[in-house]
Design a protein around this nucleic acid. Sequence first.
DNA 1: TCTGGGGTCCTAGGACCC
DNA 2: TCTGGGGTCCTAGGACCC
Length: 396
Amino acid sequence: VWPEPILHVDMDSFFVEVERLADASLRGIPVAVGGSGRRGVIASASYEARRFGVHSAQPTATALRMCPELRVVAPSHDRYSEVSAAVFEVFRSYTPVVEGLSLDEAFLDVGGLRLHLPSAVAVGESVRKKLRDDLGLPASVGIASVKFIAKLASKAAKPDDVFHVPAESQKAFLADLGAESMWGVGPATLAALERLGVETIGDIATMPVETLVSALGPTNGRHLHDLANGIDPRAVVPDAEAKSVSVEETYPYDLETRNVMDTSLLGLAQRLSSRLRVSGLRCRTLTLKLRKADFTTVTRSTTAETAFDGSRQIYGLAVGLLDSIADPRAVRLLGLGGTSLESASEPVQRQLDADEDWERVEDSVAEVQARFGAGSVGPARLLKGRISRNRGEEPR
DNA sequence: TCTGGGGTCCTAGGACCC
DNA sequence: TCTGGGGTCCTAGGACCC
């Protein structure tokens, strides 16, 4: 039995590399995928760009200031999904025990391959070679005894390499890493840890567990203490079904009137309906998300007796939810999400007869949108001209 | 020139039921 | 004329991840 059977495979600047497959002129230069509008941010940066300080989640305007020659490419999510499916096919050609964390990274439990390949490291090298040869994409691989360490190891491997943490040296590997590099430690937890004088994972490992429990709560405190000591019993669990489907939009300029917000909700309802139908899902709970100019965020949700996926139903519920938020002004983001998902193949009680025709219309709309894009067909309210008058214009 | 879009998981309180 | 304890569902918010 291999002592380190867990691989964490992480594609290197995935979105950028997919763009480079389609456009060779992007190779070898600083390039980033992201939004170019007023409120755009970077989703993925090439290593050439990172040398200038460009990184994901950074406002694109900031990135361009740090690196004026940066090529900024608009994201093409459909292509990333397609390429991701091919990447995961490669993963599954090694083992069925693949747990995806996002489009471009996954845990693989390769313990079952020990009769076929000499070592877990050999598996990692083979996966990397196959991704490179078959898909033209670079990836980094971390190899360890448990998920948490494998994830840190893949970061140490980047870019384009493998990093193996033998079980006997995992304590030393963890000890000097900063606490902020722990998976699950974000700004809030880091601030609490700093108040305890913690700087490294080693500090957490040697600290009394009670101190962590009193600062972070029993669940988090114990969990963090275990991880810092290399204890992570979580198995690699093949992918579960989606629990939510959501769409949202940050507007270039804040929305100020209810009329404009309603029109935006109609567009979001269309997109959510389309996403649900393409996935063969219905939801029973709808959540409206609203972010104001000061970045405070409120949500309102409602749950129906029977599951739904139609844009008219979604729109009607969304308007009701917006009604329940007092005097929404300076709205920078609206979003709609569906939860309590059910497979659309499950029989649902039919609504009124009049709805049957609408169901058929919406099926056709979803199909056309899937093939030609969200703007290709839709309610007259959302057609061009109307949309540019209503949506996000600079106040005079 | 502040902070995208799509997710997961956790917590806490209230309703409701037995 | 006082009021337990457990379970489930729902809602709202927040932390965190890529």
